[in-house]
């Protein structure tokens, strides 16, 4: 798979179809990967593909879009099925143009965060003795368990998984994607508040959740505004709660559930659980799912006469 990826990217660069390809390369630790930017054909050997390609590289598209010119060269981006959804989101919200990007779609069997290292940090050296495969199972990203897009919906080139020679796997998993959300919904109001209070109290306002998000592209974030200072810049429960609500709400109907915010959060606040809840409500109320159609109107910039209003007096 890596060979074919490198060949295709090499070809794109050689034919000057792309000015830059955003992909994955091995990180210094020899296990995880890190984003890389390939501009020359002789650099393609840096590109890798494995089960640790967790990053959503579409985050870099806005920063690099000035390098693109239509019709070519364009910006190439290595994207998993979930990442493609955020590319669709960016196109939908006029942040990039479809003909400015070459989507190098990857067939993806699910990603494993190098959570091992995190565990390793807690448990000391115990991890090394564990059965490696079993451990891998445990580390499969939560979002991947209910993945419906092992093969991206939109792409210019598709790199298929060598292991799957036959027909593609059935793409509708039986896992309930909203299981975690529903579990929390089942709790009492006070329990929910205590839960989130504890989680938000940890927030250190590093804004990694915002910075890593492919759809957080406001030129000036509301959190950075000082006149008035809407969101307290210092970490305190009050300001942390407001920040986390505002962050999630700005992504309502836009979040494509790549889970990057939660992964990036050093304090491990379960941000995906909030985003997912908003996605669930929007699906139920407005029958809309983000990241599927670049022509669709974002749900909060749209309305129907018969929208639900039971909550209104």
């Amino acid at each position: 798979m890596i060979k074919r990826l490198q060949e295709k990217v090499g070809k794109l660069l050689r034919e000057k179809k792309v000015a830059l390809v955003i992909g994955y390369e091995m990180a210094g630790d020899g296990i995880s990967t890190t984003p890389c930017f390939i501009e020359r054909e002789d650099e393609v050997e840096r590109l890798v593909w494995n089960e640790h390609c967790v990053y959503n590289l579409s985050r870099y598209l806005i920063e690099t879009r000035e390098l693109a010119s239509s019709p070519s060269p364009k910006i190439g981006v290595v994207a998993k099925g979930c990442d493609v959804k955020s590319i669709i989101g960016l196109i939908q919200e006029n942040q990039i143009k479809r003909d400015e990007v070459v989507i190098i779609g990857m067939e993806c069997e699910g990603q494993f965060d190098v959570e091992g290292e995190r565990q390793f940090k807690v448990e000391g050296l115990k991890l090394k003795d564990k059965d490696k495969d079993k451990d891998k199972e445990g580390k499969l990203l939560e979002k991947c368990k209910a993945c419906e897009v092992h093969i991206p919906k939109v792409y210019d080139l598709l790199i298929k998984d060598d292991r799957n020679s036959g027909a593609p796997e059935p793409q509708s998993p039986e896992v309930n994607a909203y299981a975690q959300v529903e579990e929390l919904e089942g709790k009492s109001q006070e329990e929910r508040w205590q839960y989130w209070k504890k989680e938000f109290a940890r927030c250190i306002k590093c804004y990694a959740c915002r910075q890593v998000c492919p759809l957080c592209f406001c030129p000036q974030c509301i959190a950075d505004q000082t006149l008035p200072q809407w969101i307290s810049p210092s970490p305190s429960l009050k300001g942390n709660t407001t920040w986390n609500i505002v962050r999630a709400f700005h992504l309502a109907g836009r979040c494509i559930d790549c889970g990057e915010c939660e992964r990036a959060c050093p304090m491990k606040i379960p941000l995906r659980k909030i985003n997912k809840k908003l996605g669930k409500e929007i699906k139920e109320m407005f029958d809309y799912e983000a990241g599927l159609d670049s022509e669709a109107k974002p749900p909060l910039a749209d309305f129907k006469l018969e929208d639900p209003e039971e909550f209104i007096r």
Partner: peptide, 28 residues
């Protein structure tokens, strides 16, 4: 109409976070 959608979602979010739903109300 936009407000209606916005607050429908926002109310659900506050509830989910455990904020007392009585504290935020909407009327026509």
């Amino acid at each position: 109409y936009y407000a209606r959608r916005k607050f429908a979602v926002f109310k659900k979010l506050l509830e989910y976070l455990g904020v007392d739903p009585r504290r935020f109300q909407v009327s026509w």
